[in-house]
Design a protein around this nucleic acid. Structure first.
Lengths: 207, 207
DNA sequence: CTAGTTCTGTACTGAGTTGTCAAGAACGGT
DNA sequence: ACCGTTCTTGACAACTCAGTACAGAACTAG
């Protein structure tokens, strides 16, 4: 009946995410988004209701990606829960990739968690961004806390430790890695931080 | 001989810092800076060379503030080194205050480390910002690492732990707290994170 | 009091920005 | 083949912004 869309919504929001990540929200104009996505101004406004809308929906897609990826990366048999936590910490060194098949990022500041970066920049004046970022965090929290519980069941972590507290701390470290990475520290240094964190996880009391 | 300045340089840069913190670099216009500082456009350009200059010099002042405050907060007798580390972690919950006598911040996103926030937003495209932020980090690193060494001397921390690694990790956690705070988590939650981190610090091997 | 120097306020320019609109293009049903 | 519907494109007007220029104010040495 009508003319079909000539773009793929997810693909467009993906490109917008990359743009927002590299230049920040206030650092990208609608024309930048237009260039990055290939969509014209008019279509952008009609489809996403301008910059605000593009950001919100891009964050929503990002959330979906996390909600699928994080549990997949962290769920599994109790025996290998510690390995998964270890791998998760080490992967944080390279930042959050745009997609599974895309190399994480050229410069480290653009590799930070999209939700975190937007929350830091405009979260104070845009409560929707804050809410979306919080949703992303919650999804990660659940996945990490579950993995911590698995490690506890397997006797790799102190069963007396509060798994939620531990998960909060681990995610705080992961987000902190984004910041320290933005300072320009080498991947080797970030790896060393991640390893230190892993080494300090509370092991079960000896015997 | 000539007309004297009618403003105090440090006071102006302080006001600019507050503005940049709350609205971000790209979110504040020169007029915003003018309004926040009380200086006219002309004077701003003549004195600081525009927005770039204001940011760089504001960060420089911030660096000076850290370079004085952090060692003061973390240096002291070995016996109380652990207490100082503990207090430092807990203070991070409320963010970095604008000044010693000013309450840290209204909303938590503006309470994050000024240097870190700027590095995250524009560090990728402004290497001077990256450098200044790194300087801030280095100053903190030295102070924290020294305090860790003091705690080790006093037998409160495992002497086999690398003090630099530990300091990097602690600062990563502190910066991560800024991010988690920006998500909107309660101070109680942030305090819990800080306490968890402190509890996991490596104690000397029993006996 | 005057001359010289530095600072301040404001108006201006050119570039860049946002959001809107209308004209045309691509489709499917009839 | 036509028509209604939906999408796209490009242009447009109003506005904001960064940076500059200039005229005048504040001050002091002599």
């Amino acid at each position: 009946m009508a003319r079909p869309r000539s773009f793929d919504r997810d693909h467009v929001l993906h490109a917008a995410e990359r743009q927002f990540r590299t230049a920040g929200y206030n650092g990208t104009s609608v024309d930048d988004i237009s260039a990055a996505t290939g969509m014209g101004r008019g279509s952008l406004y009609a489809t996403f209701d301008g910059k605000h809308g593009v950001l919100h929906q891009a964050m929503s897609v990002y959330f979906t990606r996390l909600a699928q990826g994080a549990p997949k990366a962290l769920a599994g048999p109790d025996e290998s829960a510690m390995e998964r936590l270890h791998a998760y910490l080490l992967r944080a060194v390279h930042g959050v990739p745009l997609a599974a098949d895309v190399p994480p990022a050229p410069d480290r500041a653009a590799a930070a968690c999209f939700a975190a970066k937007m929350a830091m920049e405009v979260g104070a004046s845009d409560s929707e961004v804050k809410r979306l970022a919080n949703d992303c965090f919650s999804v990660l929290m659940t996945a990490v806390a579950d993995c911590v519980r698995a490690a506890q069941r397997n006797g790799d972590l102190d069963p007396d430790a509060d798994p939620d507290d531990l998960a909060y701390l681990l995610l705080t470290i992961v987000r902190g890695t984004d910041v320290v990475g933005a300072y320009g520290h080498s991947p080797a240094r970030l790896t060393s931080i991640a390893e230190s964190a892993f080494a300090l996880l509370p092991r079960p009391r000896h015997r």
